[in-house]
Design a protein around this nucleic acid. Structure first.
Length: 498
RNA sequence: GGCCCCAUCGUCUAAUGGUUAGGACAUUGCCCUUUCAAGGCGAAAAUACGGGUUCGAUCCCCGUUGGGGCUACCA
């Protein structure tokens, strides 16, 4: 049974790199009918952020990544819940478990108590760096304090930590699913602290204990963990457990190829949510950062991603997070939204912009009309957040300079004649003909019959309706506006030129 | 500094021991056209460098360079 997990620290918001890690873990599990779980790694009490867990879960939920087990959102989506029988899935609720396993390690002499002060450690590191030596703990407490004495000091309440007794001979070799064989000399592996002086485990102990007890088969995580994998493997060995498979993902990069950071743009999933990107676009984009199924298709829904995904096709090099490509994906997904779906997505932005009244959504006729309005701009915006400003001209009679009515190849005199003529003609049209296609056919026929230049009519017509230099076409706008409003706006234009 | 990882157009990437090194985004030209967007057809643009192995290397090996990661009582 394939079981993968995403194990974020609640230190803020879900990072787009985290989203990708979660996504790959999810895709890998789902592809093989396995389980995907979420565990919260909150052993660092200092970096803990209130609501950090909730924020992360909400972003995952928004992205459509659903956990089978572990920490999840409660029904109201504003609270945290847990499901599954291998929990708890929040590390701070598992302290007694870690203590038990640390005790086992201590007994097996695979770990030892250390009473060294931070100052000594710091000095040691300075010395090592100065002498161009690899840094690491010198096993002072292992070598100088007999276990019984250490035991006594601990009982007496002396401040201490528990360290891994790393054998310093030989090398650790493991097979990474993405990178192949990785070898690291054991003498370079530090005697990592396993239990901190505050009683909390460090990542290294907790991750091994949890992945084992939660029966994780594949650990998919960021590249930054490669160098600590030997410590984890040593722990598996000490416990007599079978280690999981490892896959270390390449990093996401800034434009300058440094590790993706807040300094150079938005990195939180919520930032993109707030900017009006569609979750399916972000997910598709992020999936393609470092992975590619090989064909030429680029638009993949979550289900298609599951079908196509494989770790073998994940690249080894880091990928630049390129927002222009994200924009393209977003436009593609916007284009695929039907009017009702577009309205559903755009609604919160329209309300926030105070463009419309939330209560009006109940009114079917109104919401159908609003959906048509949104369709005018669907292919002209890149994000949902641009929609309110883009459709604003529909809601209020536009103000614009008279000169704008004049087509680049036309004259003001021409406008003076054409607009009233057009108005007169439109008034002869029946309401039943008031649709984009029929309007276009009729008006184009009328233009031809009167030997006007197409632009000399359509340009001022469009400007009269929109008040904008750039806008959707006049027929589309007219159809949405309705005959009465079109007449009003044309009269206003006539008033302006004369 | 030490250790580890990585390297194809500007960016995301495909491919092969022998190809005109393919696609997408971005850039750009033309077409369509009432404006914009979309769309259509084009253009420009890459195997980091140096050694091997080989009849032949972008691909395999070594080195160099460059980039990144780790080097915490952070994850």
């Amino acid at each position: 049974m394939i079981r993968t997990r995403f194990a974020p620290s609640p230190t803020g918001y879900l990072h787009v790199g985290g989203l990708r890690t979660a996504l790959y873990s999810y895709l890998f599990a789902k592809k093989q009918k396995g389980k995907f779980l979420v565990r919260i790694e909150d052993t660092d009490r200092e970096r803990l952020v209130a609501d950090g867990t909730l924020n992360i879960l909400q972003s995952l939920d928004w992205a459509g990544i659903v956990q089978d087990e572990g920490v999840c959102l409660a029904k109201d989506k504003n609270q945290i819940d847990q499901k599954g029988d291998r929990g708890p899935y929040i590390q701070s609720e598992r302290l007694s478990i870690y203590r038990k396993y640390a005790e086992e390690l201590l007994q097996k002499k695979a770990a030892y108590y250390c009473f060294c002060m931070p100052e000594r450690l710091e000095e040691l590191r300075d010395q090592q760096t100065k002498n161009k030596m690899p840094t690491g703990y010198d096993q002072h407490c292992l070598k100088t304090i007999p276990p019984e004495e250490a035991q006594k000091r601990v009982k007496a309440g002396e401040r201490h930590v528990v360290r891994l007794a790393m054998p310093k001979i030989g090398e650790t070799v493991f097979f990474d699913l993405i990178r192949g064989e990785v070898r690291i000399k054991n003498e370079l592996v530090d005697d990592q602290i396993l239990i901190k002086s505050d009683g909390f485990p460090t990542y290294h102990l907790a991750v091994v204990v949890d992945d084992h007890t939660m029966e994780i088969s594949h650990v998919i995580r960021g590249e930054e963990w490669i160098s600590s994998t030997p410590k984890h493997l040593q722990l598996y060995l000490n416990f007599g457990w079978k280690p999981p498979e490892f896959a270390h993902l390449p990093l996401l990069l800034n434009t300058d190829k440094s590790k993706l950071s807040k300094r150079q743009g938005d990195v939180a999933v919520v930032d993109y949510q707030k900017k009006g990107y569609l979750p399916e676009a972000l997910v598709n984009f992020v999936a393609f950062l470092g992975w590619n199924p090989g064909g030429e298709q680029e638009i993949f829904g979550l289900d298609e991603l599951i079908k196509a995904f494989s770790l073998e096709k994940v690249g080894k090099g880091g990928s630049v997070f390129n927002i222009e490509k994200l924009d393209w994906f977003n436009k593609e997904y916007l284009k695929r939204l039907d009017p009702a779906a577009l309205l559903k997505r755009a609604w919160p932005w329209l309300v926030e912009a105070k463009l419309i009244d939330e209560k009006k959504l109940e009114d079917k006729k109104y919401s159908d009309w609003l959906a048509r309005v949104l369709m005018l701009e669907r292919e002209r915006v890149t994000t949902l957040s641009e929609l309110p400003a883009a459709i604003r001209f529909i809601f209020s009679v536009p103000d614009y300079p008279v000169e704008m009515l004049v087509w680049k190849k036309g004259t003001r005199e021409e406008v003076k004649k054409v607009i009233p003529d057009l108005l007169a003609y439109l008034e002869t049209l029946k309401d039943i003909d008031w649709h984009t296609k029929t309007l276009e056919d009729n008006i184009k026929t009328w233009i031809e019959a009167n030997s006007f230049q197409v632009g000399s009519v359509l340009w001022p017509f469009r400007v009269a309706l929109s008040g904008l230099e750039k806008s959707p076409g006049p027929f589309e706008i007219a159809a949405v506006l309705g005959k009465a409003e079109v007449v009003t706006r044309l009269k206003a234009a006539i008033h302006k030129v004369i």
